[in-house]
Simulated assay, not measured.
Amino acid sequence: MGDDKLNVLKNFNLNRILLSSKARKIWELWNMFYQLYLNLKSKDYNEDWLELFLTSDRAIPNSTRIEKGLYKLSAITLYIYVLVYHMAEFMEKYNRWSVKAFSCASVEKKNHQQVTNFFRQTLKDGGSKKKLAIIEIFKYKNRALFYLFDNVEISISKPKKVNIF
């Protein structure tokens, strides 16, 4: 993962899939992000990365062409906001931890599991009783925890496979 991501950032040829002007901007964005990543422990960086991230479309003078920007303001997630405006403060305050301590991977994984349960095992806000999906998800999770912590054996046996040639 870690070094592989760095190799992708360093060696991926964006010109093969994007216009050269867009590829150049994205390379600059990636390079500035990498610099931001390296400088997280100090307050030595500024918000230039965010400004580049929010590059808007611009009309080319004396032309009918428009140079596409990168992202709109609506693309800023809470993660990006915290990274740019608060991460240096967190690193200074909690310097005994590394950047990995601020990962939200476990929260994202839990969200993925809940969404999967929603689409696989709930009535999706439907059914005859019109229960809210979130209530169905919580009930499912409570049942799963009950079976896990109370060592309740499930009485349903697995179906046997039959091969027919």
Rank of each mutant, 00 (worst) to 15 (best):
M87N: 01
T77F: 06
F53E: 00
P61Y: 08
Q113E: 06
K41H: 09
K41P: 01
F33T: 09
V84Y: 04
N95P: 05
V84R: 02
S98E: 11
E89P: 01
L70G: 00
A75L: 08
I60H: 15
L73S: 14
V84H: 02
A88W: 02
L83C: 05
N46Y: 03
H86D: 15
A101I: 03
N39R: 13
Q121I: 10
S98V: 01
Q113F: 03
E67D: 07
F119K: 11
K93R: 12
W49Q: 06
A75F: 04
V115L: 15
N111F: 07
K110W: 12
S42D: 15
Y34N: 02
E89H: 12
F119V: 03
L73C: 11
L38T: 03
A105Y: 08
L52Y: 00
F118I: 03
E51D: 13
Y37T: 09
G69K: 00
F102P: 02
L52W: 01
A101F: 06
D48C: 01
A101E: 02
A75G: 08
S98W: 00
E89I: 15
N111T: 12
A59M: 10
S98L: 13
L36G: 14
R120P: 09
R120S: 12
N62D: 13
D48A: 07
K109C: 06
L38I: 02
Q35L: 13
D57A: 08
V84W: 02
S74L: 13
I66Y: 05
W49S: 03
K109G: 13
W97S: 10
V82M: 04
I80M: 03
A88C: 08
K100I: 10
E92T: 08
N111R: 13
E108Y: 01
N46Q: 06
N117Q: 14
Q113L: 12
Q35G: 04
L78R: 09
W30H: 11
Y71V: 01
R65V: 12
D44E: 08
S106Y: 14
W49P: 07
Y79W: 14
L50C: 04
D44G: 12
M91Q: 10
I76A: 01
A101W: 04
E51S: 11
I76R: 01
R96F: 14
I80Q: 05
Q114S: 13
S74C: 14
A105I: 05
A101T: 08
E89S: 10
N117G: 07
E89M: 09
P61V: 02
N95H: 13
S56R: 12
N117F: 11
L40I: 03
F53S: 00
V82Y: 01
I60R: 10
